[in-house]
C-alpha cells in the first residue's frame, strides 16, 4: 500500500507541474512562488525541528561504547569508538557522519547446517548509502554553477573531476550514474529483502521515488531533452537575488524538476530525512564515555523517596544484633 501510494503521489506531483506549466501557463507560480515557499518551509522547518530537539535535555550520558574503555596506561583504549575526550567524540562523529562508521560494521546473519549461525561482514548497504549521500552532495554542489557568476572555483574543479572520463557531449558526470544506481539499489533492497519490505512505510518509499524522479528529470534535461541552460541560470540568479524573472523558452521538464525539488524541500522537515540533522544530536554517539570521571548533570534530576538505613535497622535490629552485626541504636 505504502509503495503504490508513494509512487502515485510522486507521479501526481509531476503531472501537476506539467499541466500547470504546459496547459495553464503558471510559469511564475511554479518558477518563483513555489520554490520560495518550499525553501522557506525547508529552512524554518529544519530550524524548528532542531530547536525542538535541542530544547529537550539529555538527562543521562549514555554513549554506546564500541571498544575498550580508558582505564590504565598499559591497556590500549579505543579513543574513537569509545571516546574519553571531546576530541575523541569529534572524530567519532566525523567518521559517523562522513563515512557511516556504524553501518560499516554491518553483518549478515545466516543459519547454516550444524546448526551454526554465521555473521559475515556485509558492506552493500554501507556502500550504497555512502554512494547515494556523497553523489547527492556532489550533484547539489555542481548546481551552484546556476546560482553564481562567476562560477566558484571549487564547482569547476568538481565538474572536471566528475567528468573525468570525458564521455559524450555534454560530458557524462559519473556521479549522475552512481546516484541513480544507488537510489535504484536502495529501492530494490527495500522491496526484495522480505524483512525490509515488511518494515517499510509510505514515508520510506515516498522520498525514494521523489529523489529518483528528481534525478531522472535532471538527467533527462542534461543529456536528452536539451533545455536552455542560460535561461535557467537567469531564473535561478533572479531567485537568489530576490529579483525573480521568468525567461522565455525554458522547457517544461525544468519546471517539473524544480517542482519536485521544491516538494522535497517542503517535505524534508516533517520526514525521516531529518536524520541529516538528527545524527549530530544522537546521545549514544556524541557523548564521551567518561561518566565515572566527570559529572554529567541532569537538569530535571529530583530527590526521590528512598528506604533509609534507619528504617532498615528499625525493622531488622534484633536480627542484626542476634548475629553480632553492629547497629546504630542499641
Amino acid at each position: 500500500m505504502g509503495l503504490l501510494f508513494s509512487f502515485f503521489a510522486v507521479a501526481i506531483l509531476g503531472v501537476i507541474a506539467f499541466v500547470g506549466v504546459r496547459s495553464i501557463h503558471l510559469h511564475y507560480f511554479f518558477g518563483v512562488i513555489i520554490p520560495y515557499l518550499a525553501f522557506a518551509v525547508f529552512i524554518v522547518g529544519i530550524a524548528f525541528r532542531v530547536l525542538k530537539w535541542a530544547r529537550v535535555p539529555v538527562p543521562f550520558r549514555i554513549p554506546t561504547t564500541a571498544g575498550q574503555e580508558k582505564s590504565f596506561p598499559w591497556i590500549k583504549s579505543s579513543k574513537i569508538d569509545n571516546p574519553f575526550t571531546s576530541f575523541g567524540v569529534i572524530i567519532r562523529m566525523a567518521l559517523e557522519v562522513l563515512v557511516f562508521r556504524s553501518l560499516f560494521r554491518n553483518t549478515k546473519m545466516e543459519l547454516r547446517d550444524g546448526p551454526q549461525f554465521t555473521y559475515g561482514s556485509t558492506k552493500w548497504l554501507w556502500m550504497a548509502g555512502l554512494a547515494f549521500h556523497w553523489t547527492f552532495l556532489v550533484i547539489l554542489t555542481r548546481h551552484l554553477r546556476l546560482f553564481f557568476e562567476p562560477v566558484p572555483f571549487f564547482v569547476e574543479i568538481l565538474e572536471t573531476l566528475d567528468g573525468f572520463f570525458q564521455v559524450g557531449a555534454p560530458v557524462l558526470y559519473i556521479t549522475d550514474l552512481i546516484f541513480l544506481g544507488a537510489v535504484t539499489f536502495l529501492f530494490l533492497r527495500r522491496v526484495i529483502i522480505p524483512q525490509v519490505r515488511y518494515i517499510s512505510l509510505a514515508s520510506d518509499y515516498f522520498p525514494l521515488f521523489l529523489i529518483g524522479a528528481i534525478g531522472t528529470t535532471g538527467v533527462l534535461m542534461r543529456y536528452f531533452l536539451k533545455t536552455d541552460v542560460v535561461g535557467i541560470k537567469e531564473l535561478m540568479m533572479g531567485l537568489i537575488t530576490f529579483n525573480p524573472v521568468i525567461p522565455a523558452g525554458i522547457g517544461t521538464i525544468f519546471y517539473i524538476h524544480l517542482f519536485l525539488v521544491s516538494a522535497l524541500f517542503a517535505y524534508f522537515p516533517m520526514s525521516k530525512l531529518m536524520h541529516m540533522a538528527g545524527v549530530f544530536m544522537s546521545p549514544t554517539r556524541n557523548l564521551a564515555n567518561n561518566n565515572r570521571a566527570a559529572l554529567h548533570a541532569n537538569p530535571w534530576n529530583y530527590p526521590v523517596k528512598a528506604h533509609t538505613y534507619e528504617e532498615y535497622e528499625e525493622e531488622f535490629r534484633d536480627k542484626m544484633k542476634s548475629v553480632g552485626l553492629p547497629v546504630e541504636k542499641e
Binding site: 525542538k52 518494515i199 525521516k272 536524520h275 544530536m281
Partner: peptide, 22 residues
Amino acid sequence: DKYRSFRLFLDICVRCGACADK
C-alpha cells in the same frame, strides 16, 4: 520532552533494517 534520546530516536529512524538481524 524529558529525554532527547527518546524523542530523537522516535523521529529519525529511516528503517534501513541494519538492526534487524542483530
